[in-house]
Design a protein around this nucleic acid. Structure first.
Length: 832
RNA sequence: GCCGGGAUGGUGGAAUCGGCAGACACGGGGGCCUCAAAAGCCCUUGUCCGAAAGGGCGUGCGGGUUCAAGUCCCGCUCCCGGCACCA
């Protein structure tokens, strides 16, 4: 540090009593001014390139919490950054206001879901405003508004016309707590995603969206997202869709032909028995009359098992011999047929050929039922019938007739060719993905716009009668009862058939919340459009979303469904893009003391309380500074008080610098520090390495403070430097930055806000250093440092290093074997 | 079981091109200011040896490649996440 002690002492003695930094006063000062200035409306910058920045919209359950503060704070930095860079940014907000969580919470409080939901929305909206998120409030939407769900229903009808929405009877997931069916994606480890209750199966007629038609495209289009989505999410979707390549093989059982799916057609010679899913109708159909009783009893046992028990892999294999045999189309061998619960009714064809030598589950069953084990692929491993371990690796075919001697992959290809030539099977692809079950037996969702007529069957509600509004049902019992509460609204329920005019009833189910959220990002482009769900021209301008931010919990729910919707809309000619979200950021969670916050643990942190203690900016800065955006933040490990301290330092510096008499004098050291920070922070924000960007702000602040304390020689440099800092910091800590901006003399009230300023640029000349520190290593250890010109020559640098005091000392008279020179940063001398 | 991701000081993290390990903070220690405290400011803080100068060691563990490895390769251990009888 320069400057004598006396000088510094003079400078740091306040001559007048100074107001300490009060974050709340700063908030109160600027919030109303910003409201008036209307700073964040999309479309403000005629002709500027557009960028659509979006957070996953919130559920209106209670007020905002720490998780919201993290996610929206992060996304706000990015949105504000792009605004400062001159983009026309759309950063809208709305509410995912239909759905089970809000409905359950409302019922618990004995309130109507609408009352509860809209009250929460107002609370959250006000909290967002105070939290200073740069939303364009003019585009606000709620999925529970009739103006919105009219188009959700309209889309349902278009999907149905294309055969993508259909009704079928099947065994579906049922949550006994919420008294409704659930989609496959909403069952997490056998339990309801919402309430954690163990899910059971029910045979019901339900509405589905045909996602499986899009399985291939959902997989293949991921290539476009490879570099801009977290690889973890892509992997999860890939596994969820679960494409497997194999073959369908037809086995004759009596007069029936039963097809199986297998990924290992090469092992057909090793199939020693056949298994059908015990709970599939097929089992009953195939069963010999004298085995019927045994099968019925077994099916009863299976039904009693919960999904969780059934899924445990180490459970002993059970099953029933059906007393019939199946004909292997390749070997013409008759093999016994069993029904067992380890074969799933709803995967593949619900039946398998069992190859115990090469499939562990089949081997376990064979050993339990004393069935033959025949090795047909020699992998070099020991006999599975001896070891109890099935072999699935590569090898050479044996005991396989004409296929003997082929390698596994060759055999798979050859068997498929032969099956197709001879009949009896064909190459096939199978998916783990099931169709999306969208109907719910609950009140708080968009009614399914279908009328059931005795004469005409299912009839679509005509477009001009949309929306099918929810009946009010105020005062009625909305408690989950297993069938939709809508069935009790007699006046609403009974209608005349749109087709024949005869007596008919409305469909009483409502749609899953995830249907609402599968297209809201499109509605934001033209929220008031009345001729369709969205204005295709507006969508063309804004979509796809340039940056999407949200939690990883939606990896295979919302994110998969939205991708599906986008592709369907593309096929309908309504949108150009096929992917809705060009880039995705999964922010981490805010936890406390190593654990997720929960009521039962009593470790919850109240956002409102933190904001009252530390202020908005300090909480926002703490979240961002804590670590990489995608990492969890343990609130016990971070220091909002430290953030307050930093912000106060910035505010004090601004006040000091703002009071300096105007001057043109510059301080090259400050100029270079500012330029370096601007340059680096720009790249850091682009790379979403926001925590490091904050560290650079802190360094720059210290540099400028020291320059000021040392006599504030370069007033112009300091004023400009603090201004540049304010613009950049404004993306992170909007209130403090505005305060700083104003202390520098900007008339914010007149529209000269830091949030309307342009991102600073770094003069390239200032980024070139006069000298560079060159490290001199001897045998890889640092022994000296040299200040050299950035363009120093290799030979010159080698000589300098060899002559350096540290180098000579460490070399200790030894000769050199080689000298590696990486000008201008490093020389490594290797002793002989 | 399968598929991802990770392990760096007392703590959160930085070092994203194979080139100074520990930026920036939090916490700790010491000091200045004060009647005192708070606030603020300054110094210090990986570890071991040493009074110091200086030196040794150090990025989960074991090997390897390289003049040079937190970073690349091989083999482990542990932690976190996802899927899970998916044929």
């Amino acid at each position: 540090m320069s400057g004598t002690y006396e000088q510094r002492y003079e400078m740091t003695q306040p001559t007048v009593e100074r107001e300490p930094y009060d974050p709340h006063a700063v908030q109160d000062r600027w919030l109303p001014v910003w409201d008036r200035l209307d700073l964040y409306r999309a479309g403000r910058h005629e002709g500027a390139p557009k960028k659509y920045v979006l957070d996953m919209f919130p559920y209106p359950s209670g007020d905002l919490h720490m998780g919201h503060a993290e996610a929206y704070g992060l996304c706000d930095v990015l949105a504000r950054y792009w605004m400062r860079r001159g983009f026309d940014v759309m950063h809208p907000i709305g509410w995912d206001s239909f759905g089970l969580p809000a409905e359950n919470a409302a019922i618990k409080r004995n309130e109507h879901p609408a009352t509860y939901t809209y009250a929460n929305i107002e609370t959250q909206a006000e909290s967002f405003r105070r939290y200073a998120i740069s939303f364009d409030w003019t585009r606000r939407l709620h999925t529970s508004d009739p103006e919105y769900y009219r188009w959700t229903q309209w889309l349902f009808l278009r999907f149905r016309e294309r055969g993508l929405a259909y009704r079928k009877s099947s065994a579906v997931n049922w949550c006994p707590q919420d008294q409704t069916v659930l989609a496959n994606e909403q069952v997490v480890q056998g339990a309801c995603e919402r309430c954690g209750t163990v899910v059971t199966k029910r045979d019901l007629t339900q509405w589905f969206f045909k996602v499986t038609d899009y399985a291939d495209r959902l997989l293949d289009d991921m290539e476009q997202l490879r570099d801009s989505w977290p690889s973890r999410v892509l992997k999860m979707q890939e596994n969820w869709i679960g494409r497997s390549q194999g073959a369908h093989v037809d086995f004759a059982i009596g007069t029936d032909t039963v097809t199986v799916f297998t990924t290992r057609p090469d092992t057909l010679y090793g199939a020693t028995f056949f298994v059908v899913a015990a709970d599939a109708p097929l089992a009953l159909q195939l069963c010999a009359p004298d085995r019927r009783e045994a099968l019925e009893a077994y099916r009863e046992d299976v039904r009693k098992l919960s999904d969780i028990d059934r899924q445990s892999t180490d459970r002993p294999k059970t099953g029933v011999d059906l007393g019939v045999s199946a004909l292997n189309p390749v070997t013409d061998e008759q093999i016994p047929v069993y029904a067992a619960d380890y074969v799933l009714a709803d995967y593949g064809t619900g039946a398998i050929m069992a190859v115990p030598a090469h499939d562990q589950r089949d081997l376990d069953f064979a050993r339990a039922f004393d069935l033959p084990v025949r090795v047909v692929v020699d992998t070099g491993a020991e006999d599975p019938s001896v070891t109890g371990v099935a072999t699935s690796g590569d090898g050479v075919l044996v005991h396989s007739g004409p296929y003997d001697g082929l390698r596994k992959e060759e055999a798979i290809a050859q068997v498929v060719v032969d099956l197709e030539a001879r009949g009896g099977g064909k190459g096939a692809i199978n998916y783990r993905l099931r169709d999306w079950l969208i109907s719910r037996q609950r009140f708080w969702g968009p009614p399914i716009p279908i009328v059931h007529c005795e004469a005409c069957g299912e009839v679509a509600v005509p477009d001009d009668q949309l929306p099918v509004r929810l009946p009010d049902l105020r005062g009625a019992d909305l408690k989950p009862a297993g069938t939709s509460p809508l069935g009790a609204a007699t006046e609403w329920l009974n209608v005349s058939c749109p087709s024949c005019g005869g007596p008919a009833t409305r469909d009483t189910d409502t749609m899953d919340t995830f249907v609402d959220s599968s297209w809201y990002f499109l509605r934001f482009c033209s929220p008031d459009y009345t001729d369709g769900p969205f204005d295709p021209e507006a969508v063309r301008q804004w979509m796809p979303v340039a940056q999407y931010v949200g939690g990883v919990e939606h990896a295979i729910l919302h994110l998969l469904y939205s991708r599906f919707f986008m592709k369907v809309l593309h096929d309908m000619g309504m949108v150009d893009a096929v992917e809705p979200f060009a880039a995705l950021l999964n922010q981490g969670q805010v936890i406390n003391q190593g654990k997720a916050m929960s009521k039962s643990l009593g470790n919850g942190i109240d956002l409102g309380a933190e904001l009252s203690r530390f202020g908005v900016d300090a909480v926002r800065l703490t979240m961002v500074f804590a670590g990489p955006p995608e990492d969890d933040i343990d609130w016990a490990d971070v220091s909002p008080a430290g953030s307050v301290k930093y912000l106060a330092r910035v505010a004090r510096l601004a006040e000091d610098v703002g009071e300096l008499p105007l001057s043109e004098v510059r301080d090259p050291a400050v100029d270079r520090a500012v330029a370096r920070t601007v340059d680096e922070v720009t790249r850091l924000v682009e790379g979403q390495r926001l925590n490091v960007a904050v560290a650079r702000f802190m360094e720059l602040t210290s540099t400028m403070r020291k320059s000021y304390d040392a006599g504030a020689a370069g007033v112009a440099s300091l004023r400009e430097g603090v201004a540049s800092l304010a613009v950049m910091l404004g993306c992170f800590a909007p209130y403090t930055a505005e305060e700083v901006w104003s202390r520098l003399g900007h008339d914010v009230e007149a529209g000269d806000s830091v949030h309307a300023a342009t991102w600073p640029t770094a003069e390239p000349a200032l980024l070139v250093e006069d000298t560079v520190t060159c490290v001199v290593q001897v045998a890889g250890k640092v022994r000296d440092r040299l200040e050299v010109a950035p363009d120093v020559g290799e030979d010159e640098l080698r000589e300098l290093a060899l002559a350096s005091a540290g180098g000579v000392k460490a070399l200790d008279g030894r000769g050199t074997r080689t000298v590696i020179v990486r000008a201008p940063k490093l020389v490594n001398i290797v002793p002989a």
